[in-house]
Amino acid sequence: MAEQVALSRTQVCGILREELFQGDAFHQSDTHIFIIMGASGDLAKKKIYPTIWWLFRDGLLPENTFIVGYARSRLTVADIRKQSEPFFKATPEEKLKLEDFFARNSYVAGQYDDAASYQRLNSHMNALHLGSQANRLFYLALPPTVYEAVTKNIHESCMSQIGWNRIIVEKPFGRDLQSSDRLSNHISSLFREDQIYRIDHYLGKEMVQNLMVLRFANRIFGPIWNRDNIACVILTFKEPFGTEGRGGYFDEFGIIRDVMQNHLLQMLCLVAMEKPASTNSDDVRDEKVKVLKCISEVQANNVVLGQYVGNPDGEGEATKGYLDDPTVPRGSTTATFAAVVLYVENERWDGVPFILRCGKALNERKAEVRLQFHDVAGDIFHQQCKRNELVIRVQPNEAVYTKMMTKKPGMFFNPEESELDLTYGNRYKNVKLPDAYERLILDVFCGSQMHFVRSDELREAWRIFTPLLHQIELEKPKPIPYIYGSRGPTEADELMKRVGFQYEGTYKWVNP
């Protein structure tokens, strides 16, 4: 592979701008107003304001973009700056750019259920340069409990009458099928589907988006991507930290609602779906819905739930269990780990287990898709061969690698495990991989909904998990304890083995 010439960040961002501006969906010269509902909250200060700053800094926003914060707290732009700027990672050389960014910011205080507050917000936006005809993007960085009041008031008082209007809704989209349907029906009564952007930030990850290209742009994968060759698929999300004093919020939802029903299920769809007619948003989402419709409700015998306990040999936070978090209700049975087996009941995947695993306070930070292939028929190497695996590593250190057998150097035919490896950090030294939120917010500006969740996708996802969630809430089974920093409950490994996964433990990928 030829040595790549190092590029400056300015040059890299210039390439990104060229890609972005050559499309006809990006209205570079139009006025846009980006409204952050819930501007005083954690999500706004840690993710949304920093993301908008990065896009502005790199010249990736339309030229005439204004940012308006809205929340109940009586704040000023200076207050917003004070709480969000520490997350910007701005350099001293960017000081003038930073001043320009905050000059485009404003803030309006108001209630979430008060019509007069929204009329005041609308008047404020109209007073901005060309504000009355601007395109408006409303980001709901809010708890779902206020979605209905907020969307109703936005629709009645704050819509642009000339430009387009788009609304970005953060997960969780309800707690179960019934609450999700209620919320979807409410929002759909106010906005068209092409105006609604239900954001799952995992769909903005580079390697998640790469799944489609790997599958449908490489001839070698087509013939082997089926039940005849693939023994099982494992989708993993692991965090090495616990709730760390923020367990009160987590306890309301648990690990299945927080990660599995959305992030992991979306990745499953991209692995299992048929080739779409095109890369058009609805063509892709149509195929994802077909996959979900082929999955039956989760069966309790295919589920393992766990909850982390303190590690007596650990240090600091590792010595504390979930129930030691003062914000967690006493005696909570909320799971911090889950392993679930699903089956896609169609011709391509009949009988292939899709194993979804996620948890907190585990032994490493990792998100990946792992396809394990069947054993080689007619073994001539005296059971020395391990199964081939194709691994798409989402985070950290984005990579695609194939675990395969090669001859060990020497005189004899002794096979050993090795890999074919594409590590993004080595291959793409001159490429700026956008943060997931950067990519998705740019998608909203461009009107691309491919990486957002459609209402029928959402409904099918909740259909699969709601009976299990209701059973857990009714019966309150005690989750299996696992030690902070471990791989999780051993019962999860036993479940995976029972459905056909072979864990060798003899080879570990190392970032080159």
Rank of each mutant, 00 (worst) to 15 (best):
Ile36Met: 03
Tyr112Met: 02
Ile80Gln: 08
Phe173Ser: 05
His124Met: 10
Leu55Gln: 10
Leu96Glu: 08
Arg120Tyr: 15
Ser160Lys: 09
Met207Tyr: 02
Gly163Pro: 05
His201Cys: 03
Phe253Val: 06
Phe102Leu: 08
Tyr49Glu: 03
Pro62Arg: 06
Pro92Lys: 10
Asn64Ile: 05
Glu206Pro: 08
Leu140Thr: 07
Asp100Val: 10
Ile196Gln: 06
Ala71Cys: 05
Ser123Ile: 13
Phe34Cys: 10
Cys232Asp: 00
Lys238Ala: 06
Pro92Phe: 12
Arg9Pro: 07
Glu252Gln: 15
Val68Ser: 01
Asp200Ala: 01
Val108Arg: 06
Thr65Gly: 03
Asp181Met: 10
Val146Gly: 02
Gly248Asn: 06
Gly131Glu: 11
Val68Gly: 06
Glu18His: 11
Gly163Leu: 03
Leu177Gln: 10
Gln11Tyr: 14
Glu93Ala: 14
Ala141Gln: 08
Ser40Ala: 00
Asn185Thr: 11
Val150His: 03
Cys232Arg: 00
Ile230Val: 13
Gly131Ile: 07
Leu235His: 03
Ala78Thr: 08
Val68Asn: 02
Leu43Ala: 01
Asn126Gly: 15
Arg81Lys: 14
Tyr139Ala: 06
Leu98Ile: 10
His186Met: 11
Arg215Val: 02
Gly163Cys: 09
Arg74Tyr: 15
Asn229Tyr: 05
Ile168Asp: 02
Ile162Pro: 14
Ser123Trp: 15
Trp54Gly: 09
Asp30Tyr: 14
Ile33Val: 12
Leu177Lys: 10
Asn122Trp: 09
Arg72Phe: 04
His155Asp: 11
Asn218Ser: 00
Phe26Ser: 11
Ile36Trp: 03
Gly163Ser: 08
Leu43Phe: 01
Ala115Thr: 13
Gln111Trp: 10
Tyr118Val: 08
Ser184Gly: 08
Tyr70Ala: 07
Ser157His: 13
Thr65Lys: 04
Trp164His: 08
Ile48Val: 09
Arg227Tyr: 09
Asp100Arg: 09
Glu99Val: 09
Phe221Arg: 01
Arg192Leu: 13
Asp251Asn: 14
Leu75Lys: 12
Asn218Thr: 03
Ala109Gln: 13
Arg104Tyr: 08
Ser179Leu: 04
Arg104Pro: 00
Phe237Cys: 13
Phe173Tyr: 10
Gly174Val: 00
Met207Leu: 12
Lys95Asp: 10
Gly222Leu: 11
Pro143Val: 11
Ala25Val: 12
Gly38Asp: 01
Glu18Gln: 15
Ser160Val: 12
Glu94Pro: 02
Pro50Ala: 07
Val169Met: 06
Asn122His: 14
Tyr249Asp: 05
Glu193Tyr: 01
Thr236Tyr: 06
Glu193His: 03
Phe66Tyr: 15
Ala115Ile: 12
Thr243Glu: 03
Ser29Asn: 15
Asn64Cys: 11
Gln111Lys: 13
Ile52His: 06
Asp228Gln: 13
Arg215Lys: 08
Phe191Gln: 03
Tyr139Ser: 07
Glu170Leu: 01
Gly222Ile: 07
Ala115Gln: 15
Lys89Cys: 13
Arg57Ala: 08
Arg57Leu: 07
Ala6Thr: 15
His27Trp: 12
Arg17Pro: 14
Leu43Asp: 02
Leu60Pro: 01
Tyr70Asp: 04
Gly110Gln: 02
Thr10Ile: 11
Thr76His: 11
Ser188Tyr: 05
Pro240Cys: 09
Lys171Cys: 02
Lys47Tyr: 11
Arg81Ser: 06
Gly14Val: 08
Ala44Tyr: 03
Ile199Lys: 00
Val68Arg: 03
Asp113Phe: 10
Arg219His: 09
Ile67Gly: 02
His186Phe: 12
Asp24Pro: 02
Gly204Arg: 04
Thr236Leu: 05
Leu98His: 01
Gly23Leu: 12
Val108Asn: 06
Gln161Asp: 13
Asp176Met: 08
Cys158Glu: 02
Ser123Cys: 09
Ala134Asn: 15
Lys238Gly: 03
Ser84Gly: 10
Thr236Pro: 02
Tyr112Ala: 02
Phe88Asn: 05
Ala25His: 15
Lys205Asp: 00
Cys158His: 01
Thr236Trp: 00
Glu239His: 04
Ser123His: 13
Leu211Ala: 01
Leu214Val: 14
Asn122Tyr: 09
Phe250Cys: 01
Asn64Leu: 06
Ile256Tyr: 00
Met37Ser: 02
Gly23Tyr: 12
Arg81Asn: 07
Lys89Asp: 14
Met212Pro: 05
Asn229Lys: 00
Gly59Thr: 04
Phe87Ala: 08
His186Ala: 13
Phe87Arg: 06
Glu99Thr: 10
Val169Thr: 06
Gln133Thr: 11
Tyr107Lys: 01
Phe56Tyr: 12
Ile168Trp: 02
Ala115Glu: 13
Gln119Arg: 15
Ile167Glu: 00
Phe241His: 09
Gly222Asn: 14
Leu43Ile: 05
Val213Tyr: 09
Gly38Arg: 04
Ser132Tyr: 14
Thr31Met: 12
Arg166Leu: 01
Thr145Phe: 11
Arg182Thr: 14
Tyr49Leu: 15
Asn153Ala: 12
Ile168Gln: 00
His201Ile: 03
Thr236Glu: 14
Pro223Val: 05
Phe216Gln: 05
Leu98Tyr: 06
Ser179Gly: 09
Leu55Ile: 07
Arg219Thr: 10
Tyr139Lys: 00
Pro143Glu: 04
Thr76Gly: 09
Ser180Cys: 05
Ala116His: 14
Ile196Tyr: 01
Pro223Gly: 08
Glu63Gly: 13
Ile234Lys: 11
Leu75Gly: 08
Glu170Thr: 05
Asn229Ala: 09
Ala231Lys: 14
Arg120Phe: 10
Pro62Lys: 07
Asn105Gln: 11
Asp194Phe: 07
Ser29Arg: 13
Pro50Cys: 06
Thr151Cys: 11
Asn210Asp: 11
Arg215Gly: 00
Leu203Glu: 00
Glu19Ala: 15
Ala231Trp: 00
Phe138Gly: 02
Gly23Trp: 12
Thr65Pro: 06
Ile162Ala: 13
Gly23Ala: 13
Leu98Cys: 08
Asp30Met: 08
Ser40Arg: 00
Cys158Asn: 09
Glu94Val: 06
Ile167Gln: 03
Gln83Asp: 13
Trp225His: 05
Glu19Asn: 14
Phe26Asn: 10
Thr151Val: 11
Ile256Cys: 11
Ile256His: 03
Ile168Ser: 07
Ala134Lys: 09
His201Gln: 04
